[in-house]
Design a protein around this nucleic acid. Sequence first.
DNA 1: GTCTATAGCTGGATAGAC
DNA 2: GTCTATCCAGCTATAGAC
Lengths: 214, 214
Amino acid sequence: MSNISKTTDWREGRRRSARDAIIDAAWSLVAEEGLAGLSLRDLARRAGITTPTVYSYFDSKNAIYDAMFAQAATKFAKRMAEPFGDLDPLEVLVTGVRRFASFCTSDPARYQLLFQQTLPGFEPSPESYAPAVEALAHARGWLARNGITKARHVDLWTALVTGLVDQQISNDAGGSRWTRLIEESMAMFVAHCQPSRVSPNRSSRQTPRKGSLL
Amino acid sequence: MSNISKTTDWREGRRRSARDAIIDAAWSLVAEEGLAGLSLRDLARRAGITTPTVYSYFDSKNAIYDAMFAQAATKFAKRMAEPFGDLDPLEVLVTGVRRFASFCTSDPARYQLLFQQTLPGFEPSPESYAPAVEALAHARGWLARNGITKARHVDLWTALVTGLVDQQISNDAGGSRWTRLIEESMAMFVAHCQPSRVSPNRSSRQTPRKGSLL
DNA sequence: GTCTATAGCTGGATAGAC
DNA sequence: GTCTATCCAGCTATAGAC
């Protein structure tokens, strides 16, 4: 099918892993200096190359941030898409939120890049952004399994979940003061959205699904 | 009581208003350029002075941030301390959270400075920080009026409230997509904390108050 | 592709005249 | 207190040899 020679593939592969090595160095740097503290000098030094060499792989500093965003969004999507096995709807929701929280708290700089728009002058390209929306569609699926499809309730859920994660990262880094509230808060939330629910099956959907996933 | 001459008072007043003018210029700048985009050159230009003159009022750039923090924290404390008139406990809570959200969303840069620890290399001095904790004590009072005093519930409440505000600022600036959920979310929260409550009075406190306010 | 060298700019902060 | 002039450090990005 392809007429690309083995040599070209090989070079492409090398180029790719060199790019990845730079991105890896970038992540380790922002973990220490903060997301905004990324300088191309330090980055080059840590990657074992010089500043101009960085420019042979990335057009600009923002292109580096964009590659970091794309990598993070892809990992995020994969993590959210992992199957749950045989769990009932509420357990799916709780486990999913735990996953989300674990993903976020394990690397605050990554969380800041992905979910807080706080980097001056940077916004991700549509290609980099795409996996992130895909991942959020999964979250909607978790809610839908609990019969929760109203936009108002989805918004309330995003506020609750991001609030827990945000407080955890900002005020108890490394601990579990807020993440341990996940189960209780999800029970509260589901009980609020399904006031008359008796059994945890899908019998009493509040709104008909249109074209939503799951 | 004081032996300070009128002249000295006058000069002190002038010095003070000059400081205030610089801080005002700083707020208008960060509203446009973002909190991290504050440069002393631009600040001086906007304040109608030159860079060295800024240094005759503030020792460093961080001292300017600290003065901004102090001013914001003081305004915050005053806003939170305003009386509520004759409201029942739940109305007090809802009104208080609305106040908090209104304060936060009306100036995102101020919110970022006060509540998100995102400025590289800056942390407020204890003096500047003091009014902020005072204000949070008021919030505890709103909760206590609803019989909510458990640390776990207070944490859940802070996550919920900051999550709503955060989503509002990040994803619907200028709108009300999340702030309009305040009443519903507070009802959900209070119902969860007071599962057996029948009437909205203070009859069924869950935990005895120790030395808490109100 | 990788280097040395450096351009070009902006930042915070200071010296010293007035 | 306010200015002009300037220092020095850091940054992104590029030119050009190899």
